[in-house]
């Protein structure tokens, strides 16, 4: 469904130097597949996500969705950012409806759907509140609802739980898996957390930095539905160890 073919991305830094963020990245993502991108800072995983989302264009190669080259943000793509990035002046309901309003497609059905989504993530009764009245976890839940309000086929998530505390993070991880099971979507998920990637993904794409490229793609053969108990399984252990080795090299494991 999503085809990334030989994509490279070079940024012009402020002092005029060219910074190569991605080189020769190729990746095929199937419909309703959950793919996690992991790697150290500067490996270009967020850039890759932005390329798929049409927020930035590749310097070389091609990104396409169902055969159409991505040249700008598409209406069938939903974004969840690292911070909830809610509009502080708008109510939670208006924040969730924001994409529909921006695209000029807002209808009563969207309002109904927004309320449904908020109920699904446990935010029923908070529709009229403002973001500052919600905790960080609740804000990010609203951020996820916002990404889902247009019922997009593709969900792009850029370290969505990165700014949350560990407990909220686990809670939202479970919630995301439930949402993905209820309404299957193609999900591209950037994270720093290896266990999170393994638990969520069908495939984990491990990236390496300078220039950003794909080091290896690892299939995760854990059955669904998944939960945190699976962390004890040997498939889980093997996958996390393999990813860790790829990122840090085997030396780091011996030291640990």
């Amino acid at each position: 469904m999503i085809a990334i073919e030989g994509v490279g991305k070079t940024f012009q830094s402020r002092d005029g130097d060219a910074v190569e963020a991605l080189r020769g990245v190729s990746l095929q993502i199937r419909r309703n597949e959950f793919v996690c991108l992991v790697g150290p800072s500067g490996c270009g995983k967020s850039t890759l996500l932005r390329l798929v989302g049409g927020l930035t264009l590749p310097s070389s190669g091609r990104v396409s969705i169902d055969g159409t080259t991505v040249a700008e943000p598409r209406s069938d793509t939903g974004f969840v950012f690292q911070a909830a990035t809610l509009l502080p002046w708008a109510t939670i309901l208006d924040n969730v409806l924001f994409p529909a309003r921006m695209m000029g497609v807002l209808t009563g059905a969207h309002v109904e759907r927004a309320r449904e989504l908020l109920t699904m993530v446990g935010l029923a009764g908070f529709e009229g509140k403002h973001p500052r009245e919600l905790s960080g976890g609740m804000q990010q839940r609203a951020g996820i609802c916002r990404a889902l309000v247009n019922d997009p086929d593709i969900l792009l998530m850029d370290e969505p739980f990165g700014a949350l505390d560990a407990l909220t993070r686990e809670e939202l991880t479970l919630e995301l898996m439930r949402i993905a099971a209820e309404r299957p979507k193609t999900i591209l998920f950037v994270t720093h957390s290896i266990p999170e990637a393994v638990l969520l993904a069908d495939r984990v794409v491990v990236m390496s930095p300078r220039p950003g490229r794909i080091a290896e793609i690892i299939d995760i053969d854990l059955p669904r539905p998944r939960d945190f108990d699976m962390e004890a399984r040997h498939e889980f252990q093997d996958a996390t160890r393999r990813i860790r080795d790829l990122i840090f090299g085997s030396r780091a494991r011996r030291a640990a």
């Binding site: 927020l55 943000p73 209406s75 950012f81 990035t85 509009l87 994409p99 921006m102 695209m103």
Partner: peptide, 15 residues
């Protein structure tokens, strides 16, 4: 305006 909010607008195809 923080760049994240502008980015949010762009991702929503805001004119």
């Amino acid at each position: 305006v923080p760049p994240e909010l502008i980015e949010l607008g762009r991702s929503c195809r805001a004119s």
